[in-house]
Design a protein around this nucleic acid. Sequence first.
DNA 1: GCCAACGTTGGC
DNA 2: GCCAACGTTGGC
Length: 155
Amino acid sequence: MGKNFWLVKSEPEVYSIDSLEKDMETPWEGVRNYQARNFMRDSMCVGDKVLFYHSNADPTGVAGVATVSSPPIPDETQFNKKSEYFDPKATPQKPNWICVKIAFKEKFKTIITLAEIKSNKALKDMVLVQPGSRLSVQPVTQKQFETILGMARRK
DNA sequence: GCCAACGTTGGC
DNA sequence: GCCAACGTTGGC
């Protein structure tokens, strides 16, 4: 339990690390990519550590840390006709989209920017910096996670 | 706002 | 099952 490490992306104008700090916990809804869903459904465990990344932001980068705080649960937005994430093919008996809840852990004093991540050789294998990679939920290694944390502590 | 890269959809 | 067209992501 709690031995995997992840990175999730969010546009801060939609949901930022400050939003999570205020809510303390939130279902990670609205992911509509099968690979990302499969990570949440099949591989995430309660207690896993999560880097919270701000995309389409100024600056873009890792803004803080969260933890996985629930087992996989159906993403409720797929049943809501009014939601932009509504999926007419999904039913409560046969949900198509699965998510987990994440809980606030910490907000970094400053963002660890994408530029800083790219210039750190220890992080060159991160999924985040692979050309063309757009996964919004992605695995990171323990070492990558600790490297980012170290950069945040040092600033 | 632009645009490259990727994922999904749908005709055949 | 192929693949062109379209939509989305996300850095810049």
